[in-house]
Design a protein around this nucleic acid. Structure first.
Lengths: 230, 230
DNA sequence: TATTATTAACTGATATATCAGATATCAAAG
DNA sequence: CTTTGATATCTGATATATCAGTTAATAATA
């Protein structure tokens, strides 16, 4: 085992809500950071030992990560990092566009005036950050905005689904961590989503959110082309 | 605990790939069949005892079911059946339409001639069942068809996502188990999906699959109205 | 009697020991 | 030298005992 990885696993003794959650977060990040490569085995005993916990929470963590698509357990053989290579950023963003589009539609139909006010405040906060070019925070708040839409959809199913997609999205973004800055473009599109939501126009809200994310995809693809062209 | 439920849990001693998987399937079905009602607690010790297994595989099963959105665990307080009431059949089918639509697109782009052949055979099998009005089997094979599309999309993420949506779909269908027969209508639409797939026309495949499922939704909604009108 | 403190009985969370399949090792037989 | 089969040693799977919050019942107190 890589010494750096060992250090990483041991260092995560903080943030204890439950050992299970700690294990989920730590292992996920270890995979996402590239400490484990696709196809490589992850041994529950080893993880447990390095994290100074028992195998029980590690096993439970594996079940969650398996559902997120990050690992795959073959009974009595081992748990392995999934080949996420089979999932492209293109597929991820297409699915995100559809899912968040539907969330926007439901949110538009269900949100109360108070909810709408909060959403508006979020966008205003983001506008300021954009003007001041505080990119780091802006990326953070952007995620919050999207999460708000999902929450306001008030659908456990949509939320679960979004979580699944997000797990892949996060993994991908860290692996190829560019594009975050690019996303500062087209932030104005958020307001178009909001306007539809404000008027409780579900159909428009869905379309706006969907095309917003698909435009992000366009940017990513063009950027990819540019990199290859150089 | 209901005696009927007790019987149900005890009877599931067959089909042993792993106790964990058995627990997942059994508990899921128990919820879906309505033995457990939304909000009701599910105790891991009780389940383990009735199924004659230890709590370890039950705990792992809970993690999977939690990700599927069927249960919710509050640390040291209990595991409870989720309030799926907040999810309507309308939302389920809208999401399914989007997800399977995307799967159809990817499948169309990725499938080999051999794959296409298998898909065609599946549809032919269904045609025969339809002619002979063997509804029970037809419903089964219909599910297989949809699953094939997802599999041929060759995307772990799409598959995971579809699993999540399907968990909700199954739950709803059993709770209000009508509509299965209604689905024998519009089976011809499957062929339109196939034709697009055969020509590797992803865009059309997506649209056809999406509208196919949305038409199912229409049927369900109209049926709902009719029932209320009576 | 109403209120508070105490305890007993839940619950899930965790640690640990053991079971069981999969696999690699290595020695004996061909 | 190759093949075969016994065995040691991996791995995850499972059972069980114990830990630690949570809650409800109960007893002590005002």
């Amino acid at each position: 085992m890589d010494a750096e990885l060992e250090q990483f696993l041991m260092s995560r003794t903080n943030n204890i809500q439950s050992l299970r959650q700690m294990a989920v977060d730590t292992i996920r990040e270890a995979i996402v950071m590239g400490y484990y490569k696709p196809g490589e085995p992850i041994r529950e005993r080893q993880i447990a030992e390095k994290m100074n916990i028992s195998t029980t929470p590690v096993k439970e963590a594996f079940r969650t990560l398996e559902y997120e698509g990050l690992v795959e357990t073959v009974p009595r053989k081992g748990t392995f990092v999934s080949n996420m290579a089979d999932t492209s950023i293109e597929e991820i963003l297409m699915l995100r566009a559809s899912v968040e589009g539907l969330c926007a539609r439901l949110a538009a139909e269900k949100m109360t005036p108070a909810d709408k006010q909060k959403l508006k405040q979020q966008l205003e906060r983001m506008d300021i950050l954009l003007q001041e070019q505080r990119v780091e925070e802006l990326v953070q708040e952007n995620t919050t905005f999207h999460r708000m839409i999902v929450t306001y959809a008030q659908s456990p199913m949509m939320e679960q689904t979004w979580n699944t997609v997000s797990a892949f999205d996060r993994a991908f973004r860290k692996l190829a961590l560019q594009q975050n800055k690019e996303q500062t473009e087209g932030f104005a599109e958020h307001w178009r989503v909001f306007e539809a939501v404000e008027q409780s126009d579900g159909e428009t809200a869905e379309l706006e959110m969907k095309s917003h994310i698909l435009r992000t995809l366009d940017h990513v693809m063009k950027q990819e082309q540019r990199r290859r062209g150089e």
